[in-house]
């Protein structure tokens, strides 16, 4: 096994587990930032430089901010953080369900004869060819993503803005 890969996997999984089990929301969010960084390291390890930096920029730079904003805006006082422990059987059934899914996935992955080709890595697509792919054959998809981002931004503004005439909470 590759040592770098093992370290990255440990970082990703450990931060995810800790984030899922912490009671403090801010700690969860910050640990998840560690998880996202770990995923970025994985991309870097796999040779997808551009995706790694994009992941760091979007997740660490933007989405983490959004999460922290959400936490800060929806809590009254620090001591009064909403209690997070759901009922015990819900947690137990969720863990059981998750473990079952993992079991199925793991067996499927290990049983499938996957045709790999590590000797000749498909990796390190040059930035130039990536750009030409995006602007050439994938141009329509880029446009659609642009429209999607604009629409979601507008939708978010509409959703979050309070009613001007003070009819707060009116259905």
């Amino acid at each position: 096994m590759n040592l770098t890969f093992a370290l990255i996997a440990f970082l990703i999984l450990a931060s995810a587990v800790l984030a899922a089990t912490r009671r403090d929301l801010i700690h969860s969010a910050l640990l998840l930032v560690g998880n996202w960084l770990g995923v970025a390291f994985f991309y870097l390890w796999a040779g997808a430089e551009f995706v790694a930096f994009a992941q760091a920029l979007v997740y660490v730079g933007a989405i983490s901010m959004v999460v922290l904003f959400a936490v800060l805006l929806t809590r009254r006082m620090r001591t009064e953080l909403p209690l997070l422990v759901a009922t015990r059987d819900r947690v137990v059934s969720a863990v059981l369900g998750g473990a079952a899914v993992f079991g199925v996935l793991a067996v499927a992955v290990l049983r499938t004869p996957l045709d790999t080709n590590p000797a000749k890595p498909a990796g390190s697509v040059s930035m130039l060819s990536l750009g030409q792919q995006l602007m050439g054959p994938q141009a329509a998809a880029v446009l659609i993503v642009g429209v999607l981002l604009t629409v979601s931004l507008l939708g978010a503004v509409v959703l979050a803005s309070s009613d001007a005439d003070g009819k707060e909470g009116a259905p």
């Binding site: 994985f42 991309y43 796999a46 996957l114 790999t116 498909a122 990796g123």
Partner: peptide
């Protein structure tokens, strides 16, 4: 990314 990296 894993499939992209390791598949032929």
């Amino acid at each position: 990314i894993a499939f992209w990296r390791f598949s032929p």
